[in-house]
Write a protein that binds this DNA or RNA. Structure first.
Lengths: 141, 141
DNA sequence: CTTTGTGCAAATTCTTTGCACCAAA
DNA sequence: TTTGGTGCAAAGAATTTGCACAAAG
């Protein structure tokens, strides 16, 4: 419901496929890849093509309903949360985690050095807390 | 000369090809793509293969001699300047421009939320000052 | 009926890999 | 002579494109 209304508000024709993709982004904060979205939605919409997922995500990005995150070496990732925040990717488990910005909000500017800014991405890479703990444990042997 | 010494200091075997790539990065602050580097160096080293450029840039990144910038949709870009700074890409002319960080230096942390950070990228996209001026001028007709 | 959306298959493009040859210590 | 570097050609993989069919207004 919510996803459909959201699309209409943004001026996007709410097809079954587009609603499904938008809903997936709103209910899964995992920064999924095209493939992950496609595989997940394939269960409920068996005819859904990857092309349509690509098309839809491009459309959503253009209308500001989603953000394309360029953090992953091999795949584009998408985020339905369009509020200012950063992202962290663990090079061990590949998960992408949100990084709230306490004092970095001033980075999300509309202009710098005379350049007009349309989007900002703050990307971190490293080892996440979970993987670090796991590594420390296995090392103890 | 400088490039060769730099490589040795970092523990990298200074082959002709590696020196050339490193030197190119140090003397061209344009955040070049693999292809741009290859084409530029091809003149002086006709046998240089793209594979070697790929290998070398990977090596330089691993040894901290260069940074891989994930700002370009279609190509990896590289920067020989490893000091903390952001990048801006103009969606009109595709140039990548350095963005100095006056008050954002605290973004380059070693830890956030328990996650160990290995690298940080601050990426801006929009229209650069030059393209904006040009657009404004052509609009006046 | 006309416009827009979907999906299959093919094409494109950047990057990686396998392997043989070359160079240096 | 042994290790490491280079480069060609082929493979790999994510994304885009062309086109025909389906759906919606």
């Amino acid at each position: 419901m919510k996803a459909a209304r959201y699309l209409v508000e943004l001026g996007i024709q709410p097809s079954v496929q587009r609603i499904a993709v938008m809903d997936y982004l709103l209910t899964h904060k995992t920064h999924p890849t095209v493939d992950e979205i496609h595989q997940a939605l394939h269960k409920s919409i068996p005819t859904l093509s990857k092309t349509t997922v690509y098309n839809t995500l491009k459309l959503l990005s253009e209308y500001g309903a989603a953000i394309m995150i360029d953090i992953d070496e091999h795949n584009k990732r998408f985020d339905g949360d369009t509020s200012p925040h950063g992202h962290f990717q663990c090079s061990s488990c590949n998960r992408v985690i949100d990084i709230p910005l306490d004092n970095g909000r001033e980075l999300f500017l509309s202009e710098v050095d005379g350049h007009t800014i349309a989007s900002v991405q703050l990307l971190y890479k490293g080892i996440c807390a979970g993987c670090k703990a796991h590594n420390d444990k296995t090392k103890q042997n």
